[in-house]
Every structure is written in structure tokens, then in C-alpha cells.
Design a protein around this nucleic acid. Structure first.
Length: 278
DNA sequence: TGCCAGGCCGAAA
DNA sequence: TTTCGGCATGGC
């Protein structure tokens, strides 16, 4: 990868196995797009960047100050994922899961964006979720000039609160569009506050967010994990038993099964155990 | 044409 | 408390 004078090559940890592809395509976020050169371009909190991995190191454009101010937290760089993976590989299944998910980092996403994307995710598939989110940003997000092209920030609640479902028809999000508008209105009216949510225990935060229309248990848990970085949000006991039961010894076959995404929760579960010191 | 995709909602049993 | 159909859209 060529590095220009405006770019910073940042290696987070010498023992990191960061994979941009795994991290950006595993279903936790929907805004990073792969470029022809293998790097990934995205916008987070109104800031654009290009990211790639090199020998397991996270590489990102921008200055060191920009990295420390935004991207270090976003990519959860102060968590030792290599150590976590090593520690939880205690049997064939966990070893396979650890190996397969070694490149994933659990991103610290902006809560509002995470809420919207997982409202869109219900009864949907990842490519289509990404397409709807892209149309949402292009249509209602602030334009950002980056590397000679125009990208878009994620729309603010204010930009969506006064829209009607008909206004959002170009999204082709179907019955999910009113959920987005209702969430935006809840933010704008003060009925929903992420600051309040941050101060609540996970169980209370889950009940709080599930008062929103279109937010059931699944959307709530994804929001808590990916929007608030609550690593204890998943009902791991049930999910992990199902995932382990479906594992026949072949991880490659396993990830093609209906439990394809569940292994991730298995991975997240061990991250949680590690971080909470259980 | 019918089924399914990383659900949720509300009615009915 | 659980079950089930409907809900928009798009790919296979």
C-alpha cells in the first residue's frame, strides 16, 4: 500500500490480527466500502477515513491527533484482542471460532447511527441493509469531501424528525421507515436520550430503548452492543448453546449454516468475559 | 410464483 | 404466555 505525505501508517499492536474485511463485513456496521486497492473508506461521526490492514496492523489515513481523538476509540484499540482470542480457545469449537474471528474488532459506533442501522436490519440481509443505509446518508446526510469524492455523514435526528414515510420512500426500506422517523422524533423531543441510556445498567437500558417503536429484543441488543459498547448485552447462554450444537467440526461449513452470525456472538461473549474479568 | 432474509407488532388462543 | 399472520422490499 502506498502511503502519501498526508497519510499516517498506524500500527496498533505488533501482535494484532486486525482484519478490515472481517471487522467491516461481519454485520456490526454497514458504512465501510471496499475500494479497488483493497482499502476501505468510511465516515464515522462526520469524519472520513480510509482504512486497511497490513500484516494484522490497523492502518488509517489522517494525523496522529485525529487518530487519538476518534479512531483509537472507534476501533477499540486499547483492548488486546489477540490475548482474548488466545485465552478463549479451550476446545475445538472455541479454537475454530477464535481463529475464524481473530480479525474482528468490536467497533464503538455512534449510538444514533447504530440504532438506525439495526432498525433497518430487521428481517433484512446485510447487502440490502448497507444499500438502504447508503441511500439514507446520500439523501439526508451532510456531504463530506474526501480524496476528491463526496461522501456523506450519517443524517442527524434533526434531519429525519420532520419527514413523512412518503419522504423516505426512495429509501425502499418498507415498513422500517416509520421506525426511523419515530426514533428521530424521540431524540428531538427529548423522550429518548443517549446520555440517559449511558448511565443505566444494561437491563434498564434495554427496557428503555425497547419502548421505541420497532425496537424488540434483537434490535435492542444489537444497539446496546454496537451503539453503546455494552458487551454484556447478549443473551449468550441460549445463543451459544445453539451455535455449539450446530458445529460439526468444520468451521468453514459452520459459517455457511444458519448460525453464520452466531459465532460472532460467541466471540463477543468471550470478549465480554475477558473485559469484565469474569 | 413462492420462499426467505440477522424482527416487530398486535390479535387471538 | 405463546403462537401466528401481516408488514415492504428484493434476491434467488
Amino acid at each position: 500500500m502506498q502511503i502519501t505525505e498526508h497519510e499516517t501508517y498506524i500500527e496498533i499492536r505488533s501482535d494484532s490480527r486486525f482484519s478490515a474485511r472481517q471487522t467491516f463485513t461481519c454485520g456490526q456496521c454497514f458504512r465501510w466500502q471496499e475500494q479497488a486497492d483493497g482499502s476501505w473508506r468510511g465516515v464515522v461521526r462526520g469524519r472520513a477515513a480510509r482504512v486497511w490492514d497490513d500484516g494484522g496492523a490497523l492502518c488509517i489515513t489522517g494525523t496522529r491527533a485525529q487518530f487519538d481523538a476518534l479512531w483509537r476509540g472507534y476501533f477499540d484499540c486499547d483492548t488486546d484482542y489477540a490475548s482474548i482470542c488466545q485465552s478463549f480457545a479451550v476446545d475445538e469449537f472455541t479454537a475454530a471460532a477464535a481463529e475464524f474471528g481473530a480479525g474482528i474488532r468490536i467497533l464503538n459506533q455512534e449510538p444514533w447511527e447504530a440504532l438506525c442501522t439495526f432498525l433497518i436490519s430487521q428481517c433484512n440481509n446485510i447487502p440490502r441493509i448497507a444499500a438502504i443505509v447508503q441511500r439514507l446518508c446520500t439523501g439526508w446526510g451532510q456531504p463530506i469531501s474526501f480524496e476528491g469524492q463526496t461522501l456523506h455523514a450519517f443524517p442527524t435526528p434533526d434531519a429525519l424528525a420532520d419527514l413523512s414515510p412518503d419522504d423516505l420512500a426512495p429509501l425502499r426500506a418498507g415498513y422500517r421507515a416509520p421506525y426511523l422517523i419515530a426514533a428521530a422524533q424521540a431524540i428531538e423531543s427529548g423522550a429518548l436520550s443517549f446520555d440517559t441510556l449511558r448511565g443505566l445498567p444494561t437491563e434498564d437500558a434495554r427496557r428503555y430503548i425497547m419502548q421505541l417503536r420497532g425496537v424488540g429484543r434483537k434490535v435492542a441488543d444489537c444497539f446496546l452492543l454496537f451503539g453503546l459498547h455494552r458487551l454484556d448485552a447478549f443473551p449468550v447462554d441460549t445463543w451459544m448453546k445453539k451455535a455449539a450444537a450446530s458445529y460439526s467440526g468444520d468451521m468453514k461449513q459452520f459459517i455457511d449454516s444458519p448460525f453464520a452470525g452466531v459465532y460472532q456472538q460467541y466471540f463477543f461473549y468471550y470478549v465480554r468475559e475477558h473485559q469484565l474479568g469474569k
